[in-house]
Design a protein around this nucleic acid. Structure first.
Lengths: 232, 232
DNA sequence: GTCGCTCAATCAAGTGATTGATGGATAGCG
DNA sequence: CGCTATCCATCAATCACTTGATTGAGCGAC
């Protein structure tokens, strides 16, 4: 974003272009080779990409995007900076890949939901899941918030984050709609609006907890909010 | 935070210490001279400090803390970098001053509240104020969010932000307590918990709106949330 | 004449990215 | 099978520029 220096020496430009073109098609064979090699694939090309993404993800959680350096990411993986640039053309690309990883975590990392749970139980469970994420993967909410900030200026990040938020709101919306139908939630609720309230609260609650973790009554507030949605 | 280089040449160390000591006492005469000189004070020492803080504040809103550079701040004011360092020993100090300015804006920038408003009207008005701030000072919410992120790693910022959040929550809490007493809000509400819900929602609502401004129903959600607090 | 304010010049440590080369695996050919 | 042509993954070295901070001097005012 601030580097973008024009190529100094136009030599080897053909090779450069070729490598760039190759890189695009490199994502494809990953799943294929993984399926074929089963166990040994973790050290291959796909493994390196993943290692870099994981290292960047952890570093962002530790020191923030503001102080994230490509050298530190490479060092954490134990490779040279040029090797990092072999897998990701720019720092920006790597960050976008981190957002993908983060989104995947956000989607899959959930506390187990008892089968046959009612809508009310499932909405309560959404909070349990939030606490669960904080316990087993405390980096996640930090990285999410860092990316929210970056989304303002980085288009790649914005697009991905928008999808994540839409998916999350959609899930909660469907859940509340189901709860209204079953009588768990007040019948005069608009599912979309109620979902906006719940997700905005959850997000702002995490932000405030980041600044004043001891004095913000996160659990009680969520519990009370869910209760407010019940029929009166 | 990442520079902190030890002084290269220990020469003029006494002067350095003296200037540092002088700087602390420099905040004091600002108000005194301002009161004395009335109009001409804006160009004096106090004016420069203020100019720098305002320039930094605007730059943070435009490009974010991640890409904030002291050179750009100085250039925006039209002065040299060393002059910036004459007023603020470190970048960190300047940022802390920006937080103070931001907090002051957050406190004072409010849509006019009709006299004799009920608690319910005043809570609604809090949302009107939020919209008002977005209109007359759109930078504010961006800077607040940027600072929230930085608070994790910058103690000076964290302390100031914590105070701001406590003040805000306290205001809403008192407001809700008053509303409960007057019958505007449900009697079974815990003011502290309800305030946490309202402020967390407001904050998360701003964050989501930053990423997906068009699709997030900010107004309707706030309106509905306030309605949920009414007696049933 | 000294005190507050300012700047040109410079420092030292970065900072993202590039280059050219190298060891090793794989494929192609006779 | 043996030999070479590619390609993949990697790195040391370096580029061109950035970045927060410092120094020492100049200038106007009181």
């Amino acid at each position: 974003m601030q580097r973008k220096r024009a190529p100094v020496r136009p030599a080897r430009k053909a090779t450069g272009k070729a490598s760039a073109a190759t890189k695009k098609s490199k994502k494809a064979p990953s799943s294929a080779s993984a399926a074929a090699a089963a166990t040994a694939s973790t050290t291959a090309t796909d493994g390196r990409r993943r290692e870099l993404v994981l290292a960047a993800y952890k570093l962002i959680a530790e020191i923030g995007l503001e102080e994230l350096r490509t050298r530190d990411i490479a060092a954490k993986v134990g490779i040279n900076i040029s090797t990092l640039h072999y897998y990701f053309e720019t720092k920006e690309d790597l960050i976008a890949a981190v957002v993908d990883h983060m989104t995947e975590l956000f989607r899959t990392l959930r506390a187990p939901l008892p089968a046959g749970a009612t809508a009310l139980e499932e909405l309560r469970h959404a909070f349990v899941t939030q606490a669960y994420r904080r316990r087993v993967e405390p980096s996640l909410e930090v990285v999410v918030q860092e990316m929210m900030m970056r989304a303002r200026r980085d288009e790649k990040v914005r697009v991905r984050l928008e999808q994540m938020l839409l998916g999350w709101n959609g899930y909660v919306e469907a859940l509340i709609a189901r709860g209204i139908a079953s009588g768990d939630f007040a019948s005069d609720l608009d599912p979309k609006i109620a979902a906006a309230i719940v997700t905005a609260f959850a997000m702002g609650s995490n932000v405030q907890s980041g600044v004043r973790p001891s004095s913000f009554p996160q659990e009680a507030a969520y519990e009370r909010l869910v209760a407010l949605l019940k029929p009166r």
